[in-house]
Design a binder for these strands. Structure first.
Lengths: 146, 146
DNA sequence: GTGCTAAATGATAATGATTATCAATATCAT
DNA sequence: ATGATATTGATAATCATTATCATTTAGCAC
């Protein structure tokens, strides 16, 4: 596993914060690193728990505040799962779908395809709805959990 | 709009309760009628609020308990939405997808299709995951909200 | 229908998650 | 380095959900 992507992502987020008038603080960096470095969608509580292993632990309120800010900047988003709602995950460019391992929670992002687009057009014709967006999430088992 | 489907659904649920050793009480009937009669996915709080308009209002705890029971019997399920998670909706036979109006919250159920199945097979090949299930939810505007 | 017994109810307390408050601290432009 | 101000963390307040328990009710036996 290459660590560079995590560092790049955090630096990109920091730049985004500065451009939007937010200060880049130690607390925010810590939250961003934990989110960017995770292979599963985390809850605020999990982010807090993970911070306990580090030099300085975070305040619960700061975790919520930072998550809220990152969400407003569209740098992260909430992913819904059958059990715990509200897992936090970095936003990806373009429209993507989530693939989640039922056993270990690992999450992958997979691109959409034509079949889905056709299906949506078909639904629009049948129902009279104008479809503006969609969620597709796949649940299963990753290679190491099979 | 024909009212019969709601009545039928509630009777079917009552039968299901009896067969599973649960008593059919006034409280449970009230909760079931509210859920079955709604065109939007409700939260426990909304079910409670709606009961205030009736002869006898429900206890909040009973709403939670009844919802939990209906979920265990697989008669209802939780539908996740971008804002409020955990809307409650009757379970439908077979695998279906949800179509939700962003404006009024009205929900429809639409059948799946081949395109989705093909897409999933393709993802399995690309990622090595074994896909066991999926969620597809479409968001847009119903005819009357356009 | 009457009475019995266990299940179910509703009021309320307890817990857990999220948000608001505020004095102390840290960031960043100067 | 200094100062103005955004941010932090501790804590209190709020809201959602779950547990407790005395009272009530459904369903069964008669």
């Amino acid at each position: 596993m290459n660590m560079t992507p995590v560092k790049d992502l955090v630096e990109c987020w920091e730049e985004n914060l500065r451009q939007n008038g937010y200060r880049v603080t130690r607390t925010r960096r810590q939250v961003m690193e934990i989110i960017a470095g995770s292979s599963t969608a985390l809850t605020p509580r999990e982010i807090y728990q993970l911070s306990l292993d580090q030099d300085r632990s975070l305040g619960m309120a700061s975790v919520y505040r930072t998550v809220e800010m990152l969400e407003e900047l569209d740098l992260i988003q909430q992913v819904h799962q059958p059990d715990g709602c509200h897992g936090i995950w970095p936003t990806v460019e373009g429209h993507k779908h989530y693939l989640i391992c039922n056993a270990c929670g690992r999450m992958e992002v997979v691109p959409g395809n034509e079949g889905i687009t056709e299906y949506i057009t078909q639904v629009e014709g049948q129902t009279g709805y104008g479809v503006e967006g969609h969620w597709l999430q796949l649940f299963g088992r990753c290679q190491s959990c099979q």
